[in-house]
Write a protein that binds this DNA or RNA. Structure first.
Length: 870
RNA sequence: GGGCCCGUGGUGGAACAGGUAUACACAGGAGACUUAAAAUCUUCGGCCGAAAGGCAUGCAGGUUCGAUUCCUGCCGGGCCCACCA
C-alpha cells in the first residue's frame, strides 16, 4: 500500500509553496477587457462539527479544475472560499457539545480549512469570509435595513427607496399613525402576524421553503402551524422578474424548471359571489342579500357556469364573521370541524386524501353569471394561504371538486350558455360521472377564458388576476445563533431602524443560548440587551429579539468576495463592476428553491436600489450547474447511522489528495449520483503511479527525470502518437468546459497508456503535465519543477491542439449492407465519394453477399462508411 | 396525482446535431518476473456457436439505407412538487 510516488511529501511541499507565492490570488484593478476575468463560485460550507464530507470535494474539485484551466489560459481568476457559519447546524452542534457557538464555529472552521488546504484547492484564501463575523454581518444587517427602507413600485416593477412612496391624501388626512401603518404595509421587510410553519424540535418558525413536505428541513420533524408575528421579506413582488430573468441566464434545465414550478405562476381571475344570509330576515324573499361577498380565485373562469357550490378554507375569516353574526345555523358543528382540521397536522392531511368538510347552513351564494343560488361549504382541501382561500367548485371539471361533490351528494351538472359576444364552450357531464371535457381544445379554452374575464370586468363582479404559489419569505428565527434583526420597537414611533453608524448590532456573548419554547428567541431573556432607547425619540424602547435565518448571510456572500475587507461599504462599486456577475456557480440541487432563489431575489433588490452597479446585470449568476451525490458503497445514501460515511482525511492519508481528486472526477458523470468504490480508487492510484514512472521516477526517487529527452526534437513522435496527443488536448479542453470530467480523465489515461511505452520528448512531457495539472496539481507541479522549471505549472499556459494534427491520413472505411457491418477497408482520409463507393463495391465480402444482384441504394457518409441496401 | 430525469457487460460507465455499441477503469481468468508475495508487465473476457454466422443497449412497436440516440405505448427506478383551484 505504501508503494508508489511519495505523495505526502510532495503535497505538503507544494501546498506550502503555493501559499507562500500567493499563486491563486485574484487581482483587483486589472483592466477588464471582454473576458479576461473568471469568477468561479462554489457554495461555501456550513462549518459543521462533522468536518468535510466527500460530497464537498466533488463540487470544489470540479470548479477548481475549471478555474485552474482558466488561470492557465491567462484569465484573472477569482475562486474564493468562506464559511456560512450562522445557523442551526453549528448551534445544534454547540448545544450537543456544551460549548459556545462562537467557539464551536472557530474550531470547526479551523478543521474545515485544514481539510480544504490538504486537498490542494486553488482558493484565494486572502478573501476568506465568515458570515458570523461582526465585520461581515454588519453588512447583512445594513442590507436588511435597505429592504426595510424600500418598497416595490408596481408601475415601474422595481424596488425604490421608501421616501419616494406617494402617500394618498386620504391616508395623510388620518394622521401620523395612519401614514406609518400605510408605509409599513409597503416595506420590503415588514413584520406581520400570520400562520407560519413552526418546528417543535428546533423551536423556531420556518420559511415555506424550509418546510417542504411538511417537515423541517433541518431535523425532519413534522411542522406545526402557528400564528405568529414575524419579519417577512416581500419576495412575492419579484415573482415575475424571478421568472422572466431565467431567460437571461444559463441554468441547468431542471434548475430552471424547479424554480418556475416553485414560483408557480397561474393566470386566471377573481370572481365575486354575493352572499345571502338567511337569518337576517329583511327582504321579501325571506333572506337578506348583503353587500358582502366571497372572492374566489380560478384559473378557469370559463367554467363558471359549472359552479355548483362554494368552498372556503377552514381558516377563512368570513366564516368567523358569519358565525358571530348568527348567520350559520349549524355553527357548533362548523366550529368543531375547524378545530379538527387545526389539530390535524399537515402531514396527516397529506396522508389521507379523503375529502372532508361541512356545509355552512344558512349561508348561500349567488353565481354572478346566472344568478343561481348555491350552497357554501368549508373544507380543508381548500388552502388558506393560496389565492383567496376560497374556490368555486366545478365538479364537472375538477377532480377534487368531483370527489367532494360525490362524497356529499352535491350536484355536478353544467349548463351551456352564451357570455357577452362569445359562445362559451362549457364543460359537460354525463350522469355526473364524466370528468373534464377533453374535447375542448386549448385555443377555445383560452378564448372562452378571455370572454368570461371580459364579461366579469364589465359587470364589476370579477377581474383578471395572476397568483403565485410562492409566499413571502418568513425571515424571523427564534434562535440565538444568527444576525440580530437591527430594529428597535418603540411604543411611540413603531418599528425604528438602528442607524447605520450603530451597526453592527452585536449578538451578545452569553452562557445560555438554548432555544426556549415560548415562541421567542433566547435573546428575549437578556433584558439588559433588549432594553434600549429609541433611535428616533430617545424614549425607552426594546430591541427586536428575533434573529435572521442562515439564508441571510449566504444571500450576498458572492458580493463580499469581490472586496472582503471593505470597512466603508459592503463592497467597492468598481470591484463589483469588475467581478460581477459570477461566471459559473456550482452547488447542490437541494438549494434550488432555497438559497439560489433567495439570493437571486436579494441581489435584485440591491440592484434596483443601485447598490450594485447597473452594468453587472440583474442576475447574480450567469451560469448555474449542480453536482450529484456520492453515495455509499453499494449505492445507498451515505449517513452516519448506516456507518458508511467516507472521511476525506482517511483517503488523503492513504492515497493523497491528487488520487482523491482524480478519483472523484472519474467516478462518473458529474451530474449523476455515483457510489463510492474503494477498488475504483486503486485504479486511479495506479494511473498516477504510472505517470510518476513515466517521467523516470521510481518510488522515492529524487533524481531528475532520466527518460525525458532534453532536446525537444531529439525523438520524433510517430504520426499516430502525435495525433493522439492533439486529440487529447482537444478532448480534455472541451470536456473540462462541458464539465465532463470523467471522460477527460479517461482521455488522459489513454494518452498515458500510449506514452508510457516509449521515451518522452520534452515537448510531450510538458503538454501532458499541463493537461493533468488541474486534476492532480501537486504531482504535476513536482514533475514540472523536476523538468527544470522555476515557476509553477499552474501558470504555465494551456496547450492548444494543432488542428492539422487532429485528422489522420488514413481511416477505416466501414461497409454496411442493409445496416450491418460487413467489411472495413483502410482508406486515405481524402477519398472522394465515388472512390469510396467504388472501393466498397469492389470488396470481396460485398460481392459475395450481393452475389450479382444490383444494389438498390448506395450512400457514402464522409469519413465514416458506405451503406449499401438491396 | 403532476413535473423532470434515467434503464447499455459481473460493476462504475463510454459512444447520442442517427453512422463501426461496450472506450476508460474496477472485479475476474491465464501467463511473465520473483525463493515467495506485493508491485509491475503481457494477455483473455457481452451472449449462443467448433466455425461461418446469429442475437444483444428494460419490453413491444414505428420512422430510417442505418436507432443506445428520434417517435408512440408499456414495464422498472430516481429526484422534485404535491388537495396551488
Amino acid at each position: 500500500m505504501a508503494t508508489g510516488y511519495p505523495f505526502k511529501e510532495i503535497e505538503e511541499k507544494w501546498q506550502a509553496a503555493w501559499a507562500k507565492d500567493n499563486l491563486y490570488r485574484a487581482h483587483d484593478g486589472v483592466p477588464k477587457k471582454n473576458a479576461d476575468k473568471f469568477y468561479g463560485l462554489v457554495e461555501f460550507p456550513y462549518p459543521s462539527g462533522e468536518g468535510l464530507h466527500v460530497g464537498h470535494p466533488r463540487s470544489f474539485t470540479a470548479i477548481d479544475i475549471l478555474t485552474r484551466k482558466k488561470r492557465m489560459e491567462g484569465k484573472n481568476v477569482l475562486y474564493p472560499m468562506g464559511w456560512d457559519a450562522f445557523g442551526l447546524p453549528t448551534e445544534n452542534f454547540a448545544i450537543k457539545h456544551k460549548v459556545k457557538p462562537q467557539d464551536a464555529t472557530m474550531r470547526n472552521i479551523a478543521n474545515f480549512k485544514r481539510q480544504l488546504i490538504s486537498l490542494g484547492f486553488g482558493f484565494d484564501w486572502s478573501r476568506e469570509i465568515n458570515t458570523s463575523d461582526p465585520s461581515y454581518y454588519r453588512w447583512t444587517q445594513w442590507m436588511f435595513l435597505r429592504f426595510f427602507n424600500a418598497y416595490f413600485d408596481t408601475v415601474e416593477g422595481r424596488a425604490r427607496p421608501i421616501d419616494e412612496l406617494a402617500i394618498p391624501d386620504i391616508i395623510r388626512a388620518k394622521g401620523d399613525a395612519a401614514v406609518r401603518t400605510y408605509i409599513d404595509g409597503w416595506r420590503l421587510a415588514y413584520k406581520t402576524k400570520s400562520i407560519i410553519n413552526w418546528c417543535p424540535r428546533c423551536k423556531t418558525g420556518l420559511a415555506n421553503e424550509e418546510a417542504r413536505g411538511c417537515v423541517c428541513e433541518r431535523c425532519e420533524s413534522a411542522v406545526e402551524q402557528r400564528t405568529k408575528s414575524q419579519w417577512m421579506l416581500r419576495i412575492t413582488v419579484y415573482a415575475d422578474r424571478l421568472i422572466r430573468d431565467l431567460d437571461t441566464v444559463d441554468y441547468l434545465d431542471k434548475i430552471t424548471s424547479q424554480q418556475l414550478h416553485w414560483i408557480g405562476r397561474s393566470e386566471g381571475a377573481y370572481v365575486d359571489f354575493q352572499i345571502k344570509r338567511q337569518s337576517l330576515k329583511v327582504n321579501s324573499d325571506g333572506g337578506c342579500l348583503l353587500p358582502d361577498k366571497v372572492t374566489v380565485f380560478t384559473t378557469r373562469p370559463d367554467t363558471l357556469f359549472g359552479t355548483t357550490y362554494l368552498v372556503l378554507a377552514p381558516e377563512h375569516p368570513l366564516i368567523e364573521t358569519w358565525i358571530r353574526e348568527g348567520n350559520v345555523t349549524n355553527a357548533d358543528k362548523v366550529r368543531a370541524y375547524q378545530n379538527g382540521t387545526r389539530l390535524k397536522s399537515e402531514l396527516e392531511r397529506k396522508e389521507s386524501k379523503e375529502k372532508t368538510g361541512i356545509e355552512l347552513k344558512g349561508v348561500m351564494a349567488k353565481n354572478p353569471v346566472n344568478g343561481k343560488m348555491i350552497s357554501v361549504w368549508t373544507a380543508d382541501y381548500v388552502l388558506g394561504g393560496y389565492g383567496t382561500g376560497a374556490i368555486m367548485a366545478v365538479p364537472a371539471h375538477d377532480e377534487r371538486d368531483f370527489e367532494f361533490a360525490k362524497t356529499f351528494g352535491l350536484p355536478a351538472s353544467v349548463v351551456v350558455a352564451k357570455v357577452g359576444h362569445a359562445e362559451v364552450q362549457l364543460p359537460f357531464i354525463d350522469e355526473g360521472i364524466a370528468i373534464n371535457s377533453g374535447a375542448i381544445d386549448h385555443l377555445k379554452t383560452a378564448q372562452a377564458k378571455d370572454a368570461m374575464i371580459e364579461w366579469l370586468e364589465q359587470n364589476a363582479v370579477g377581474e383578471r388576476k395572476t397568483t403565485y404559489r410562492l409566499r413571502d419569505w418568513v425571515f424571523s428565527r427564534q434562535r440565538y445563533w444568527g444576525e440580530p434583526i437591527p430594529i428597535v420597537l418603540c411604543k411611540a414611533c413603531g418599528f425604528v431602524p438602528v442607524s447605520d453608524d450603530q451597526l453592527p448590532v452585536i449578538l451578545p456573548d452569553v452562557e445560555k443560548y438554548e432555544p426556549i419554547d415560548t415562541g421567542e428567541s433566547p435573546l428575549a431573556t437578556i433584558r439588559d440587551w433588549v432594553e434600549t432607547t429609541c433611535p428616533r425619540c430617545g424614549n425607552p424602547a426594546e430591541r427586536e429579539t428575533d434573529t435572521m435565518p442562515n439564508w441571510a448571510g449566504s444571500s450576498w456572500y458572492f458580493l463580499r468576495y469581490c472586496d472582503p475587507q471593505n470597512n466603508t461599504s459592503f463592497a467597492d462599486t468598481d470591484k463589483l463592476r469588475y467581478w460581477m456577475p459570477v461566471d459559473l456557480y456550482n452547488g447542490g440541487m437541494e438549494h434550488t428553491t432555497l438559497h439560489l432563489l433567495y439570493s437571486r431575489f436579494w441581489y435584485k433588490v440591491l440592484w434596483d436600489l443601485d447598490l450594485v452597479p447597473r452594468e453587472c446585470g440583474s442576475e447574480p449568476y450567469a451560469k448555474r450547474r449542480s453536482q450529484a451525490l456520492i453515495l455509499g458503497e453499494g449505492g445507498i445514501k451515505m449517513s452516519k447511522s448506516k456507518g458508511n460515511v467516507v472521511n476525506p482525511d482517511h483517503i488523503v492519508a492513504i492515497y493523497g489528495a491528487d488520487v482523491f481528486r482524480v478519483y472523484e472526477m472519474f467516478i462518473g458523470p458529474f451530474d449523476q449520483d455515483a457510489p463510492w468504490d474503494t477498488n475504483g480508487i486503486e485504479g486511479v492510484k495506479r494511473f498516477l503511479d504510472k505517470v510518476w514512472r513515466m517521467y523516470g521516477m521510481e518510488a522515492n526517487d529524487r533524481d531528475l527525470p532520466n527518460s525525458v529527452a532534453e532536446d525537444m526534437n531529439a525523438v520524433c513522435l510517430s504520426e499516430s502518437a502525435e495525433m493522439l496527443l492533439n486529440q487529447t488536448i482537444k478532448k480534455v479542453s472541451d470536456d473540462i468546459e462541458a464539465m465532463h470530467y470523467n471522460t477527460a480523465v479517461s482521455a488522459l489515461m489513454i494518452l498515458a497508456n500510449e506514452l508510457s511505452m516509449r521515451p518522452l520528448t520534452r515537448y510531450v512531457a510538458e503538454v501532458f503535465l499541463k493537461l493533468l495539472a488541474p486534476f492532480a496539481p501537486h504531482l504535476t507541479d513536482e514533475l514540472w519543477h523536476r523538468l527544470g522549471h522555476e515557476t509553477s505549472v499552474h501558470i504555465a499556459g494551456w496547450p492548444i491542439a494543432d488542428p492539422s494534427k487532429l485528422i489522420a491520413a488514413m481511416f477505416e472505411l466501414v461497409v454496411q449492407i442493409n445496416g450491418k457491418v460487413r467489411d472495413r477497408i483502410v482508406t486515405p482520409s481524402d477519398i472522394s465519394q465515388e472512390g469510396a463507393i467504388k472501393l466498397a463495391l469492389a470488396s470481396k465480402k460485398v460481392k459475395d453477399i450481393l452475389s450479382g444482384k444490383a444494389p438498390k441504394k448506395v450512400m457514402y457518409v464522409k469519413g465514416r462508411l458506405v451503406s449499401i441496401s438491396f
